[in-house]
Amino acid sequence: MTDCDSWTDLVPVVAKPAIYAYKYRKLIHEYWKKVQVKVGFGTPTVIITGRPGSGKSVLASHYHGEANNLDWTEPGTSADVEIKPIAIGDWTKIVAVIPGQNSAERARALDETLNKTSELEGIIHVVDWGYTAIRESAIKRDMIKKKGIDTIEKIRAHNLELELKDFDSMLEKISMSIANGRGPKWLVIAVNKVDLFEKEIHEAEEYYHPSCSGVFSHRIKSFYEVVGSHNIRIKCLPVFSMPEPYVWNADTVSSQIDSYRMLRNYLRTFIDQIAEIQNGAK
């Protein structure tokens, strides 16, 4: 054996770590992101926003994977910003779930992601077509007795009004951020709790979809006029993460989907579409 032969034997050995690092780059990236989240280091590249009770935390828990654990319980009100590593397409992203309530934590998180960093890639804005959960029983009683909001239709109308206000405020923040040379590259309007209105999904689509003629569409058109449609892509996607009935006073709207397969399909399609938008926005 000559010296040259021993060198050729050595080449694969030397190259092996690099080859393996390339082969498992996505796994390495995933663990790196997990470590970053664990030690509280790393900037969120995707944020989840929306009104309180619209189902942001539950949705994020499903994509994070913790909702599959046996000891997982449905999260209540989130007072803190939740940071989770979530796989969007091939790569893992650091996702921040921002509390819906106006608080110091929400203000700080939005300011940091929209105004202090250029790393924000996208926003998932969760809406629920008026089926927002109201958590405090005293408030529910007051609404029914004092305000006369005693049917699901009335509470939905009220919720839709508040949802629109919240969306307006979000668009305003995004346009400010884009004006400063930052801001997200995409915005997904996640129409959550679709299991409650699957039969009327076209009506919901008409209401939210940017290319339809609903209320959201008007807001989006005005927003595009301000920031320019080339600066941000907006898409509307249906999703649901937990089949659950909506109860108000004596009325109940039951979940129209009781198949686990449908739930998985909705969740998978939703994240695949986001990955597609993410890739297209690069």
Binding site: A79, I134, D142
Partner: peptide
Amino acid sequence: LRRLLDMVHEYRQYI
């Protein structure tokens, strides 16, 4: 505090 978080926001928005 957690209960107040819900109450303050829901009261302000709904009542």
